[in-house]
Design a protein around this nucleic acid. Structure first.
Length: 556
RNA sequence: UGGGUUAUGGUGUAAAGGUAGCACAACAGAUUUUGAUUCUGUUAGUCAAGGUUCGAAUCCUUGUAACCCAACCA
């Protein structure tokens, strides 16, 4: 028995279309503008579009919507392709709106010939002034009544490059009094003497989004053109062009874009964070970009699961970041190798352990037997986590404290006998005795301890840099703040630990591997790491019931 | 005071006139050589007011709230 998952509204439409024979198969498209990096909101659109074609046996095109040469770059094209591939999807065709510039130009001429488009000499300000407001109708201007012949010549001249930027535009002739502002004679071509990343200097006029997107969908025979809610008013225009041009009828459907707590999702704002140096580039692990999540150690599967869980609907939403982290931990828990690393080391000396002796202990590599075991070196001097020792323990504390016993993971039970402090009061060493009969796997001591802590043998430890990331913003909705969203940037979003110690097996760590530093969180090797320098990123912390407990204890 | 879209627990998302369900979060407990994982349980919802109906989240009426639209951006 499989539990029937209910359909979202787009799947509903598709199933109806297929059942009624409107289409034999579906064709969707993902249409990024190559002017920035893809973020988690794009991941939602990617999973939707590619997921739909996968589910219904159709195809998805990747189409770069490159109609604005000023902001677009080839570097962005490359990053976008890498991100989609990494997420696990393959496109049927790699396409560019710029490939359709000739067709689009002819469509515009076609419109002029039908008396449905005209060249306007007004300035941007004049056009805006004549456009009216949402509550007031716009007005026709004198250029609106130009003859077809005149428009044809003028538009050819625009293409010919005899006018300067902004001197003239081509507008659709619809209705200056329309209640939908977008139908008040929208501009469809503008002059930009600019180098285009693909067409070079072949063109100096470029179509606007509304005169490119729907037509591109139509040219490709896209059946279901899915976009976000803010394009709802554009649909009327989308349909108008297709109808007047009498070309293949693609249909536009709109869903609500992703919003998430503790982050911003607009490309403009993300670009600002990059250019103003709040983060170190588009793939800084604190960014919500796909490349940042990848670098931070997220798995493609966790992002796909997340996109599946948040659903598709038309109402505004504000997803809790913890849902993403839940999906991440769920996947990482199954995949990550368990290793030991001490982020804030303090020396633990086993007073009754033989000087110079080393034992090899077996330790499980993962969450189940299939991961096998590895050998770990154990000795008289170990590094343990500073926060695992408390001189004056909290209530319910079952880690190291004077007189207390803990198990060293996969090793022995030790008892804290004494500790050493320096003049500043900082603990510099913890002296313990160990119980030889308590060795992991062959424990005959009969002693039960509540606490188990991780450790690294001091003489075998490797030094590592560890980067701990926290959320980039201190408030759930940075956009809610009066003033600049950047006022709520978390100044502690990155903590670099330069002197962490990790077990020696990590000398072979690779960027693709996922690790759980036991009791500390999930980590991965950063791309900055070099042969002689280990650098790990914290992907996400483990859930921490003890931290909650402490809060409660201190409140009462 | 124009047009469009949307309203279901704290957050998402189902229920197509017939038991308001699921997930995350929160809380409580069990298990645990990771205070992780796993398991069990609890809290909590149909925007409002009327109406139709044996029966309404769903249909009707009237309100209310939120979001989008006045780039030669996409």
């Amino acid at each position: 028995m499989s539990e029937e998952k209910s359909l979202n509204f787009i799947e509903d439409i598709i199933e109806t279309d297929l059942k009624e024979g409107k289409y034999k198969s579906i064709l969707t498209r993902f249409p990024p503008e190559p002017n920035g990096y893809l973020h988690i909101g794009h991941a939602k659109a990617i999973c939707l579009n590619f997921g739909l074609s996968l589910k219904y046996g159709g195809k998805t095109n990747l189409r770069f919507d490159d109609t604005n040469p000023i902001t677009e770059e080839t570097a962005y094209v490359e990053s976008i392709k890498e991100d989609i591939r990494w997420l696990g999807f393959s496109w049927a065709n790699e396409l560019y709106t710029s490939d359709y510039f000739d067709i689009l130009y002819n469509y515009a001429v076609n419109l002029i010939n039908k008396g449905l488009a005209y060249v306007d000499d007004s300035t941007a300000e004049e056009i805006a002034a004549m456009k009216g407001t949402p509550t007031e109708a716009g007005k026709d201007n004198k250029y609106r009544s130009r003859t077809i012949k005149e428009n044809l010549i003028l538009f050819a001249n625009m293409k010919g490059g005899i006018y300067k930027d902004g001197e003239k535009v081509l507008r659709a002739k619809i209705d200056m009094a329309h209640t939908n502002m977008l139908m008040r004679d929208p501009i469809i071509y503008r002059i930009k003497h600019a180098y285009h990343h693909r067409s070079g200097n072949a063109w100096c006029i470029y179509p606007m989004y509304d005169f490119a997107h729907g037509q591109s969908d139509s040219i490709e025979n896209i059946t279901h053109s899915i976009c976000t809610l803010e394009f709802i008013p554009h649909r009327e225009l989308y349909d108008w062009f297709i109808e007047k041009l009498n070309i293949f009828t693609s249909h536009q459907y709109e869903f609500a874009r992703l919003n998430m707590t503790y982050t911003v999702m607009s490309k403009r704002k993300l670009l600002q964070l990059v250019t103003e140096g709040y983060v170190n580039g588009w793939d800084d692990p604190r960014m919500p970009t796909i490349s940042a999540f990848r670098r931070k150690g997220y798995t493609p599967k966790s992002i796909r699961t997340f996109c599946d869980k948040i659903g598709i609907a038309k109402r505004e939403n504000f997803i809790d970041l913890s849902l993403l982290e839940f999906c991440l931990r769920e996947d990482l828990n199954q995949k990550a190798l368990r290793v030991m690393a001490v982020l804030d080391p303090v020396k633990l000396i086993i007073t009754n352990y033989e000087e110079g002796k080393t034992e090899e202990l077996l330790c499980e590599n993962g969450p189940d037997e299939t991961f096998g075991k590895r050998s770990l070196s154990f000795g008289k001097e170990l590094w343990v986590e500073r926060e695992d020792f408390m001189e004056e323990p909290e209530k319910k504390w079952f880690r190291l404290a004077p007189g207390s016993m803990v198990r060293l993971k996969s090793a022995y039970i030790v008892k804290c006998e004494s500790f050493v402090k320096d003049v500043t009061g900082k603990v510099t060493a913890i002296n313990c005795s160990y119980i030889p009969e308590s060795r992991s796997g062959k424990d005959t001591s009969g002693i039960n301890v509540k606490g188990t802590i991780h450790w690294v043998s001091a003489s075998h430890a490797l030094n590592a840099e560890v980067r701990l990331y926290d959320r980039l913003f201190t408030t759930e909705n940075p956009l809610d703040e009066k003033g600049d969203f950047k006022n709520t940037i978390n100044s502690d979003s990155l903590q670099i630990i330069t002197h962490a110690v990790v077990e020696s097996s990590l000398k072979d760590a690779t960027v693709d591997a996922r690790y759980q530093f036991i009791r500390k969180g999930y980590f991965c090797l950063d791309t900055d790491a070099r042969l002689d320098k280990l650098i790990f990123n914290r992907t996400v912390t483990l859930k921490d019931a003890w931290a909650k407990e402490v809060k409660k204890i201190r409140l009462t």
